[in-house]
Design a protein around this nucleic acid. Sequence first.
DNA 1: GTCTACTTAGCGAGCGCTAACTAGAATTCG
DNA 2: CGAATTCTAGTTAGCGCTCGCTAAGTAGAC
Lengths: 200, 200
Amino acid sequence: MREWTVYPALELPPILAVSLDQIVQHGYDATSVRKIASEVGVTVPALYYHFENKQAILMALLDHAMQIVTSHVDAALEEAGPDPVARLSGAVEAIVLYMAHHRDLAFLDSERRSLTPPHLERYVRHRDRIEGLLRDTITAGCRDGVFRTTNPTACGRAILAMCQGVAGWFQPSGPQTPEEAAADYVRIALAAVSVVEESA
Amino acid sequence: MREWTVYPALELPPILAVSLDQIVQHGYDATSVRKIASEVGVTVPALYYHFENKQAILMALLDHAMQIVTSHVDAALEEAGPDPVARLSGAVEAIVLYMAHHRDLAFLDSERRSLTPPHLERYVRHRDRIEGLLRDTITAGCRDGVFRTTNPTACGRAILAMCQGVAGWFQPSGPQTPEEAAADYVRIALAAVSVVEESA
DNA sequence: GTCTACTTAGCGAGCGCTAACTAGAATTCG
DNA sequence: CGAATTCTAGTTAGCGCTCGCTAAGTAGAC
């Protein structure tokens, strides 16, 4: 139960671990294959033995990121069952925990512009799928009368954007744990769709 | 009154207009000074007559962006007066209108990583100031009992992040006008701070 | 004797940036 | 008032460097 709240530390092969580090620090374009190779402790052609080109490294990292976030969100939704409040809460919790635990991977989202069209399309589909899950959940909640919003699309996008923002400010050494931040954002997301709260 | 809702088209000198266009399309690092010069119709050293170096071009654009958004938010807050609901509504409205009208300038935010530390610091101060305005407004609203949230800082950050997200999806040719999107986001922001709504 | 995981050496292209020069407009001064 | 000077907004030519990437070779494991 709730094993989707667990985000173990990444276990990446050295080339990808170093690349992630460098790209997060300096950006994809400003990260040279020479720098990656020297940080790994090999020569440049060794990289090209494992990856077709520089972009394939970025894509491998993005694939890894997408796999982690979608698997956790899917598990959270499955465990939530049909109740829209539980579904939205679970999805937001899973997403915020991801953003707080894997800030580096989450940051890569801003490097999607460096992808060539076919790769970009694949990546965008994953993002759109998550946005769709949120929107569908909100729409279902409105149908059930438990949510009240006139614009589920805008709401879903707003919630996803605010969750992505977590990766930009969260600090493991800061005042909040990932779980506390997730709880805050679940509250905000439910308020954003005007869930009717019980009085205490 | 409400002149802060008006966002006229940009009037940038040719070098900056072209640079903005290229940076938005390909990113700062992938935009060469040669490409900018040839699109403007001059030679490379002509750029260096007007700007100290490539980064100064980016900084000029970011300065312009910050000036626009802060002036509009400040004007919105001044017109709103002391009422926290009016203040939060005005600030969110001004920010979302900015994001919808100047998506290209808003996009530059993601290029701040390319700035050297002194420039970066100046830019971050501006962003922090806006985040602070939101947080202070929310805190004041909680004190007045009109907002109910346990974490004004998280709320302010969440609201700012969701507003910034607008630049990523808004389309002038889409189903919503900037004003409609702003109205949606004002509603979501007020809900996020749990403003007590009157029954109809 | 083949496959894996590299190595050395280097190609061609593009990068940010600059020294030195110039046509034409604006300004200063005898 | 007209000649001399300065200023503006560029130009041509090119330096030194780094970029992504590759052909060809090799040590050790299977």
